[in-house]
Simulated scan of single mutants.
Amino acid sequence: MVDNAGATVPLPLDDLDGATDDVWRQMLAVNLMAPWYCARAGADDLRAAQDGVVVNIGSIAGLTGSGSSLPYAVSKSALHGLTRSLARALAPVRVNEVAPGLVMTRWWAGNEERGRELASAALIDRETTPEDVASAVLGVVASRAITGQTVVVDGGQTL
């Protein structure tokens, strides 16, 4: 199972008034609770499978505390904790997370120049692509000795 839903409400990190209860509820509902509900609903089938695997799609915002908004970063940080706890709770089902950095997708439509500027902080001289993220997902699915881990796919952006 790959939990790939995500949402954000772009707000400056210091806009504490903009981080309303409704924004918090939305970020936690999509970025934390949805993967929880999926894992809980699929737990029996995952355990019955010969090699059940869950991959949560996180974000480097959960590691850095920065990102499109404070509620977004916190919700993705909570997903890291959920990933580790589910790895324990569902074992021998393997539960991991792939945490992309900036990936130029439709989310950046109209802000491509700013996105490329931010992505230029990466150590390797190319943007992270959706294919890079997909390869990381396939990698943690294929590696039967990895569980409870967060794999960062950001071209060295957070080093």
Score class of each variant (00 low, 15 high):
residue 117 E to C: 02
residue 62 G to I: 03
residue 6 G to A: 04
residue 111 N to K: 12
residue 70 L to G: 05
residue 75 S to A: 12
residue 59 S to R: 05
residue 95 V to Y: 00
residue 76 K to D: 02
residue 110 G to M: 02
residue 9 V to F: 07
residue 73 A to V: 14
residue 89 A to M: 01
residue 62 G to R: 01
residue 53 V to G: 13
residue 64 T to F: 07
residue 54 V to P: 04
residue 105 T to F: 00
residue 57 I to R: 08
residue 77 S to K: 08
residue 25 R to A: 14
residue 41 A to L: 15
residue 47 R to G: 11
residue 141 V to C: 13
residue 106 R to D: 12
residue 158 T to G: 09
residue 81 G to I: 09
residue 84 R to Q: 01
residue 55 V to H: 06
residue 107 W to A: 02
residue 28 L to N: 04
residue 17 D to S: 11
residue 147 T to V: 10
residue 145 A to H: 15
residue 115 G to Q: 00
residue 60 I to A: 04
residue 77 S to W: 05
residue 127 E to P: 07
residue 145 A to R: 13
residue 116 R to N: 08
residue 18 G to K: 02
residue 50 Q to C: 11
residue 50 Q to F: 09
residue 105 T to L: 01
residue 18 G to Y: 08
residue 52 G to A: 10
residue 2 V to L: 04
residue 134 A to E: 00
residue 11 L to S: 07
residue 107 W to E: 05
residue 94 R to A: 04
residue 144 R to N: 13
residue 55 V to Y: 05
residue 27 M to C: 12
residue 142 A to V: 13
residue 15 D to L: 14
residue 138 L to T: 13
residue 122 A to G: 08
residue 11 L to K: 02
residue 117 E to H: 03
residue 137 V to D: 10
residue 150 T to Q: 00
residue 112 E to C: 07
residue 137 V to C: 04
residue 35 P to W: 12
residue 149 Q to K: 13
residue 49 A to C: 11
residue 21 D to E: 11
residue 143 S to P: 06
residue 99 A to D: 08
residue 71 P to F: 03
residue 122 A to K: 11
residue 25 R to S: 12
residue 85 S to M: 05
residue 70 L to C: 05
residue 64 T to M: 12
residue 140 V to I: 07
residue 71 P to Y: 05
residue 65 G to D: 11
residue 139 G to C: 12
residue 146 I to G: 09
residue 27 M to G: 00
residue 125 D to G: 06
residue 121 A to W: 00
residue 133 V to S: 00
residue 139 G to F: 15
residue 55 V to L: 08
residue 130 P to G: 10
residue 54 V to A: 08
residue 142 A to P: 00
residue 148 G to P: 10
residue 136 A to M: 07
residue 8 T to N: 13
residue 36 W to L: 15
residue 80 H to S: 01
residue 96 N to F: 01
residue 63 L to D: 10
residue 116 R to I: 03
residue 68 S to V: 13
residue 93 V to K: 10
residue 37 Y to I: 11
residue 88 R to Q: 14
residue 69 S to E: 04
residue 126 R to F: 03
residue 145 A to G: 11
residue 27 M to S: 10
residue 125 D to P: 05
residue 146 I to K: 06
residue 140 V to G: 12
residue 157 Q to K: 12
residue 67 G to M: 10
residue 95 V to Q: 06
residue 80 H to D: 09
residue 29 A to D: 15
residue 35 P to H: 04
residue 154 D to Y: 14
residue 99 A to P: 06
residue 55 V to K: 12
residue 54 V to E: 10
residue 103 V to F: 03
residue 9 V to K: 08
residue 110 G to F: 11
residue 26 Q to Y: 02
residue 112 E to T: 03
residue 9 V to G: 01
residue 111 N to R: 13
residue 64 T to N: 09
residue 100 P to A: 00
residue 114 R to T: 02
residue 137 V to F: 05
residue 60 I to G: 07
residue 135 S to G: 13
residue 28 L to I: 15
residue 116 R to L: 03
residue 154 D to I: 14
residue 9 V to I: 09
residue 151 V to N: 11
residue 40 R to Q: 15
residue 109 A to H: 13
residue 81 G to D: 04
residue 92 P to W: 09
residue 21 D to N: 00
residue 86 L to C: 07
residue 89 A to W: 07
residue 18 G to W: 01
residue 123 L to S: 11
residue 88 R to A: 04
residue 14 D to Q: 14
residue 144 R to H: 14
residue 137 V to A: 02
residue 43 A to Y: 08
residue 106 R to V: 01
residue 29 A to H: 14
residue 126 R to M: 02
residue 126 R to W: 09
residue 136 A to F: 05
residue 132 D to N: 01
